[in-house]
Amino acid sequence: MSIRVMLVDDQVLLRTGFRMVLAAQPDMEVVAEAGDGVEALAAVRSTAIDVILMDVRMPKLDGVEATRRICEREDAPKVIILTTFDLDEYAFSALKAGAAGFMLKDVPPGELLAAIRAVHSGDAVVAPSTTRRLLDRFAPMLPGGGAGGSGGRARPGLERLTDREREVVLLVAQGLSNGEIAARLVLSEATVKTHVGRILTKLELRDRVQVVVMAYETGLVRAGGPAGPAGSAGSAR
Rank of each mutant, 00 (worst) to 15 (best):
K105I: 15
C71L: 09
I81H: 00
A43T: 03
R57V: 15
A43K: 00
L135T: 11
A42M: 09
A114Y: 08
K105D: 09
A94M: 03
R137K: 13
V21P: 00
A40E: 08
A24Q: 04
G37K: 02
G122C: 10
L161I: 01
V79Q: 08
D163E: 15
A94W: 01
S121I: 06
A114L: 12
L53R: 01
R73K: 03
T130P: 05
D27C: 08
M103T: 05
A76L: 04
E159W: 07
V107G: 01
G148Y: 02
P59V: 00
V21W: 02
V44Y: 10
I116N: 04
A147V: 10
T47N: 09
V44G: 11
H120A: 14
K78L: 09
L87R: 11
D50S: 06
A97C: 02
I52L: 11
P109T: 10
L113A: 02
G37L: 10
L61V: 04
K60M: 10
D136E: 07
A114F: 12
L134E: 00
P140K: 02
I81W: 01
V107I: 15
G144Q: 12
L142V: 15
R132Q: 07
K60D: 04
S121G: 10
R69T: 03
M103N: 05
L134G: 06
P109R: 10
T83M: 02
S93I: 11
H120D: 14
I80N: 01
R19F: 13
G101P: 06
R155Q: 13
L87K: 13
S46D: 14
I116L: 01
F92G: 04
D163H: 12
S150V: 15
A23R: 07
T83L: 03
F92I: 08
R57S: 14
E39G: 14
P156L: 02
A154N: 06
R69S: 00
D36C: 13
E39K: 06
G149N: 07
D75H: 07
P77C: 10
E33W: 14
I80E: 02
A91L: 06
T130H: 11
V64G: 04
M141W: 09
A114K: 15
T162I: 05
R45M: 09
A127F: 08
T131Q: 06
D86K: 14
I49E: 12
L134F: 05
R160C: 06
R57W: 14
S121D: 07
G101N: 03
A76E: 07
L82C: 12
R153H: 13
D123I: 12
E65Q: 15
C71M: 14
I52Y: 07
D123Q: 15
V31H: 02
R133L: 13
T131F: 10
M28N: 00
L158M: 15
T130C: 08
V126I: 04
R19T: 13
V64M: 05
L53N: 01
M54G: 10
A124E: 02
G152L: 09
L82R: 06
P77Y: 03
V38T: 02
A48V: 14
G152I: 11
